[in-house]
Structure formats: C-alpha cells, structure tokens
Write a protein that binds this DNA or RNA. Structure first.
Lengths: 184, 184
DNA sequence: GGTTAAGTCGAGGGTGCCCTCGATTTCTGT
DNA sequence: ACAGAAATCGAGGGCACCCTCGACTTAACC
C-alpha cells in the first residue's frame, strides 16, 4: 500500500527543516526532555506548526537519531578492524562513551526504551550486534573475564550515562577502572 | 538565642507523625520527588496542614534521612573493625550499596546536593570520613590501586544509583566487576 | 461550659508543560 | 490574478504540581 503523499509546499519544507535543526540542537544540549515549546521558539515557528509536522516527541527522535546512531556502526567497524581483540573491545568502549558524552540527547536515547521509534531501536540492536562480536572475540582469545556478556554492557551503558551527566570530565577515569576489572 | 516554642497540641503532634510516616514510606518507595499532595493524602491530612508542619520538601528530608543515614555510621564502624584492609573496603562498598538499593529515597539523597538539609550533608561527610579511612588503610597495605581517591568513590556512588534504579538485581554483579578493577 | 489560641481544611491562584482547533495567511496551478 | 488547498498561528483548555490564605474546628486551660 503506497501512500503517495504530495510533496510538501515550499514554506512547509522550510519550517520542517528549521524544526529538525532546532530539535537536534536542543536535544544535544539539554537532553530529550526539552519542552516542545522551546523547540518551536528556537525554530521561530509556532507551536501549532510544530505539532503539524511532528505530532509526538518521538517523531522528532525518530527523525534525528538514526543518523546519529550511524556513528555507532562506524566505531563498530573500526573496532572490528583492530586485530588485537582486547584493544578492539576496550577501544570500542572508549569510542562509544565519547560519542555519548558529546550529545546529551544521545545519552538519553541509549538509556530509555523508545518503543515508538523503531529505527532507533534497530540501530541500537545493530550496535549491540557489533558489541556482541567484539565480546565474543575477546572471550575466544581469553583476554576478557569468562562470564562477561552483552547484558553487562547494557548495565555499564546506563551507569556511564549517569556519570557523563554528573561529571563530564571524569567518565574516562571511571571507565578505565571498570575496564581493569574486565581483563581475564 | 533560645526559641522555646510551646509544645504541639495533641492533634498537631499526631498529624505531624502521620505526615512523617507517610513521607518516609513514599520516599522509600518512589524516591524524593513524590508529589507533596500524595504525602498529604497518604497521611490522611490536608495539603494545608502538610505545609503548616513542613513548609518545604527539604524539611521532610531533614527530618527523615539523618536517622536513616546513621546506618552509614554503622557499616562504617563495622568495616573499620574488619582487620583485612581489602575485605574492609570491599565489604563497605557492598553494605553501602545494599543500603542504597533498599531505599529509593536514600538513593536519591546520595546523588543530589541538598544545601537546605545541613544534617543530611553532615551525615554524608561523616560517611565520607569513614570511607576515606578505609581507602587510606587499603592504600597503605598496598592492596588498592595507588591513585584511588574519595572522589572516585563519589563517582561510583552516582553510577551505582543509576544501576540500582534501572536494574535492582544486577548491581552486585556490576559492583563486583568494578571492584575487580580496583585491586592493586 | 466558655474562651481563645492553635490547628485544620480545601478551594483557588500560579506555573510550566501538553496539545487542539478555528481563524487567518500563503503558496501553487491554471 | 484567482480559487482553493495547504500551512501557519496562537489563544485557550487540560493537567499536574506548587503554595497560600481566610473561614472553620478543636484542644487546652480556667
């Protein structure tokens, strides 16, 4: 069933873009919970127009974060290209949380479930896939503690989210201590 | 300057107690941010009466948590009595976060600064004192990584708060991995 | 039992955010 | 240039929480 909607009118397309840009900026700075009214104001568009284009907050999230989550694939590939299994895994963690630390909204996305943004969910699944491979490789090489699993990484991610929020300069140290605990 | 206020009338004392009990229960279950109206309802007292007894939310916090934080002293003493410096330190962490995991409000208290509840702040300082001693002893014994400091423990506490909130059954595992990373 | 200070009550005003909808404006195809 | 479809606008209703204040009730003391 093809829902061939007519193309947007020029002014509408412009406003849509302004809204997306505003949302992306405010999400990154203030997190996923910025009032939608702030986004509208920042985009210089009325609140009614905002709701016309993006009826729910998750519509913004679904438009903005899949792109940003593509970075997850990039660091995943990068890590998979690293020959040393320990370096690959540890480097992946560094890169992942560096990404998270740069974007308050992304930090939120990785902690919440967003049942209404399937593309975001699937991007996270892809990321988890990479991470799983890295874990398996490290396990096979015997460099990672034998009982480590992807669930532990999920827990770590939530913990890191909090550390990043509270003290954006100390997360590397925290991570490095935790990672020490991971060696086989 | 002694502000000898008259004793409370019987009904007032009763209501005050009901309010404290309600607040303690709801803080523990739902965290520090329960609506004050819920507390009043749960205490079967009007919202006006609540404000009469406790003009701010921090007045509740200041009444409720110093008691609860006394448990911090207990586990601190217990740890100081343990002869093995590593066991003392690691056991302290276990006990501390077990406490935190039992009480959603306490979990919140340990993450926020509460400038308006000086008794709470000072109880935390006392706790930090114990922890500092335990760290120093472990460092002196050479069993703890040499650069560890009380600031790291503060970071850990925030991280643990998040882990406890999200997955109340997995915090022990998370902690044990982190603690592995701590051995000298 | 009467007096009165102390205490209780809850309606209601304030704020911040959510979301809708009818009046108005603007684009676009002819 | 005009008609009509498409967009825009923002006032306003709803909700959850905050907090206040004046009218009412009650305990405490004689």
């Amino acid at each position: 069933m093809v829902t061939a909607s007519r193309p947007l009118r020029a002014d509408a397309a412009r406003n849509r873009d302004k809204l997306l840009a505003a949302a992306a900026e405010l999400f990154a700075e203030r997190g996923l919970d910025v009032p939608l009214e702030h986004i509208a104001r920042h985009a210089e568009v009325s609140i009614g127009t905002l709701y016309k284009h993006f009826p729910t907050r998750d519509d913004f999230v679904a438009q903005i974060f899949p792109q940003r989550l593509a970075a997850l694939d990039v660091i995943g590939e990068k890590a998979l290209a690293e020959p040393d299994p320990w370096q690959a895994f540890a480097g992946y963690l560094e890169d992942l949380y560096a990404l998270q630390a740069e974007d308050r909204g992304l930090n939120d996305v990785l902690v919440r479930d967003l049942p209404n943004a399937p593309e975001v969910v699937s991007a996270c699944h892809r990321g988890a896939g990479h991470a799983g491979t890295l874990i398996d490789r490290a396990l096979a090489a015997g460099v990672l503690r034998a009982d480590y699993s992807i669930a532990d990484l999920a827990t770590l991610t939530r913990a890191m989210a909090q550390v990043i929020r509270d003290s954006p300069d100390e997360w590397r140290r925290f991570l490095s201590i935790y990672v020490e605990g991971l060696r086989a």
